[in-house]
Write a protein that binds this DNA or RNA. Structure first.
Lengths: 168, 168
DNA sequence: ATAAACTTTCAAATTATTTTGAAAGTTAGA
DNA sequence: TCTAACTTTCAAAATAATTTGAAAGTTTAT
């Protein structure tokens, strides 16, 4: 297999994985492309390589920037914007964990907290089951939340810091 | 807030969370409904409660069974099938991790292994970057895979076993 | 063997998500 | 200021995912 073929396989696979995990396929593909590009790319180049429209490229890049996975670069004497992806997988994982925590975990914990407070007849099986399930999920979610928080400040923490070295 | 309202909020929230993580909204909702139901439910009851069609209910229940989250039950002297969800959050988490590992992580590792083998000009920046990114992701994926494997047999392992007790 | 009770299938309809592309907006330099 | 280079927006179009519902299939009891 040659590089160009390998590259498109990688982009395709990353796009598929993303879409299976609720991340827009194109966003994952643009990210994949930038991850294997030594140089920052222009919108034009990305449109060209992935055969996507200008609007799509623009929106996707903005999203990637808001996820903290891509940054804009400017080259001296050029008007064009260049886009560059951090290639440190650990940073990427941390960044994704951080964003998903903020966007999805935190909101559901808020709801679960509310639902934990619902009062009812302690003899009623329906109420008992509801209560137990909601409370258990809430506990699990809070534990995941705490674990992520610890993870995200790994550098400051000897314990997780040493666990993470195992993953590098 | 009363139980019926709380129940629908829970079902709605679980459905939303599912869809954000690539799990069909209806599937997550049916799962949520069964999680708060002390008794096993029939297809009819599920259709009724969630206002979904028979076909949808049937397919969704089959999916949930294939995910290992729901099981069929039969009541003596009845033709109807009843559906019941495991309510132990830790089992649910394990089960989901197990399935997603099999369905999504394993396939991507297979692709990454192939792409790791691609040969090329070691002076070429494009090749070097491709190689490094693919290899790094591959390593991370393999570590996640190993960690999940260990997690999934937690009971047999003193280290993770004791970590997990913190989550129970 | 037949009928009633129940489950499964899947093509077509619906709904949700993503993508396009042309127009509007912005910026930098002459 | 004006214009060319570049970026952003967003309504409409295209695509993808989900859902429906009626027909076909299956099972059980008589």
């Amino acid at each position: 297999m040659q590089l160009p073929e390998a590259k498109s396989k990688f982009i395709e696979a990353w796009g598929k994985l993303g879409s299976e995990w609720g991340i827009n396929r194109t966003m994952a593909q643009v990210h994949a492309l930038l991850m294997v590009s030594p140089e920052a790319l222009t919108t034009e180049e990305i449109m060209e390589e992935l055969k996507i429209s200008r609007g799509n490229a623009n929106m996707t890049l903005r999203d990637l920037i808001s996820w903290g996975l891509v940054e804009k670069q400017h080259k001296a004497g050029e008007r064009k914007e260049y886009f560059f992806a951090d290639k440190d997988t650990w940073n990427i994982a941390r960044q994704v964990a951080k964003e998903r925590r903020k966007r999805e975990l935190d909101p559901i914990i808020k709801i679960l907290d509310e639902l934990s407070k619902v009062e009812g007849d302690k003899k009623d099986e329906a109420f008992k089951t509801f209560n137990k399930s909601v409370n258990d999920i809430n506990k699990l979610a809070k534990n995941v939340d705490k674990t992520l928080e610890t993870m995200l400040k790994a550098e400051e923490n000897w314990f997780w810091g040493s666990i993470f070295k195992m993953f590098k």
